[in-house]
Design a protein around this nucleic acid. Sequence first.
DNA 1: CTGAAAGCGCTTACAG
DNA 2: CTGAAAGCGCTTACAG
Lengths: 339, 339
Amino acid sequence: MAERVTIGDLARRLGLSKASVSYALNGQPGVSEQTRERVLALARELQWYPSSSARALSGARTGVVGLVLSRDPDLLGTEPYYMLVLSGIEAALIDAEYGLLLRMVGSEPGRDLPVYERWAGEGRVDGVMLFDQRRDDPRIPLLRRLGLPAVLNGAAEPGAALPAVVPDEHGDADQVVELLHGLGHRRIVHLTGPSGLLHEERRDGLVRAAASRAGMVVETLEGDYTMGTAERLTTERLRRGPAPTAWVASNDVMALGAVRAAAREGVDVPGDVSVVSWDDSLLCEIGSPPITALDRHPRDFGHRCARALLAEIAGTGDGDTGPRRSELRVRASTGPAAA
Amino acid sequence: MAERVTIGDLARRLGLSKASVSYALNGQPGVSEQTRERVLALARELQWYPSSSARALSGARTGVVGLVLSRDPDLLGTEPYYMLVLSGIEAALIDAEYGLLLRMVGSEPGRDLPVYERWAGEGRVDGVMLFDQRRDDPRIPLLRRLGLPAVLNGAAEPGAALPAVVPDEHGDADQVVELLHGLGHRRIVHLTGPSGLLHEERRDGLVRAAASRAGMVVETLEGDYTMGTAERLTTERLRRGPAPTAWVASNDVMALGAVRAAAREGVDVPGDVSVVSWDDSLLCEIGSPPITALDRHPRDFGHRCARALLAEIAGTGDGDTGPRRSELRVRASTGPAAA
DNA sequence: CTGAAAGCGCTTACAG
DNA sequence: CTGAAAGCGCTTACAG
């Protein structure tokens, strides 16, 4: 075990007090430039690292932010979306020399609450990032009570209870509906994630609004992001009689499920039915047919989320650059509406 | 900000010393059962949480283990393997009330070294999990020097410099080769990941050994886990003249690349060429054709890795349950060898 | 079984 | 600009 070098060691060697060393190391006023240089040089030479626990204990930052992922592990393994968001988060944190404490819990609502409670109680993190906001989300009052900085990612109203990072949901819905309308489709099935999730409700509202402006009709089917459910819902709907010609699915996995179910029912994609995914990924690229999808820049989004949280922790305004327009990647799963 | 409850508060309320409270809370001897009960009851009532930094500073555990993922973010987003391993790790850590500090760095070798140095210096973690061991891996001497507990995941020799968790690579190679041999294949292309990775070298050796026992021949092509490279290598090999009839790829993404390249070259899968993936995932299931793949139980593997590290940290032997046999999921990408 | 005390390595008022 | 000191909330010998 390498012997730890402390600021006490640095102070002794330099004939300074620990306070001066601390000021020098932290870029605080209170030491001459010359002293600071000497301190920094010695710290580097002796490979001094600040003890994160000592720092945290004496009231400074922990240098860590927390993220609780509330999805089923199997789904996390198949949906590339979160891994990409995660890598964007990491990129932002690295720049700020922050660490990420990651926790995966199941998808049942509320399983994450004790984690925040504990993190706050133990003083583990400086803040947390929240995804998948729900109606009357219990995390918001909880985090307020705990006094833990937090950022709501994917929220609609910037003026909400917590600072938020918003995606371009409006533009997303418009792009998708526009494409389908242009292809002659007039009826859409919107295959959503669980309706308890606010972004699913918002998306559905925006799709309906855009559709109705274009004189189109929308049927909503509530899925759960899994392929199995998407296949079942699609099969049922196709069998129930005259079905819409366009399907919009909330993620890539469900879009694939819709395509597979259609194939199994003898419904041609895109001949009889067009399919669009709200998330792009390799899954969409390799589907047969490849699936038209929105590239919502998940890495970029993760990066913005982390930066917003860091700004919140630092108390320096939100610093959010605002949403970036998604790119609709048109592939073979969409085509002219059947007559 | 909720006021922090400390053991001092508990001690005062109960008329005990902080030491007694600490002993009671930590299940240490030195307090009567009755006292312990009272302490625990009050701690629960006041929602006391141990300050992780105070604990860590006074020499106890940090309660956190670290993981550095050294792959390109884009690849992490497409390859489901790591997310599944991660969820297995999380499951084991939750049981032990441990947290996971996650860091993603690029795939250039060595980018992770400063992270370990820093984590050790800052006293951030109790140990780290190592994946993707390389020949003369610099992490091993580094971690030894730093005195940071570590576990090598995916290593072959249990008697190595660090405790290790081993997959059933032998069985994996045998299963794959056996399947192909039974289908009449006699020549295999082994599309590997970077040869600097020890598990790639071992796999290749095992595939060659199993093949040669069965009178088969193996050609090795070194890929980098990406689809692009796999497509290019496959295309080149197919064009170069009489190619083997069986392709074994080190991950699902490369297997897909091989299938796509074959299709583009007018080579039928599995009519002309069979393809097997070393990793199973949704990508394999939805491929056209669906790809025969080894389910190496990545969640289970992650779970074992985390448990081994926790055992190492606790100093309680390795506690590894040993490898679990992988399951070869035979799908439409493999068939009888062309005459 | 219990208490008083030192110490972990920092940060931060407070004096000089 | 610098130093002596208190304090963060625990754990852990050491006495009783």
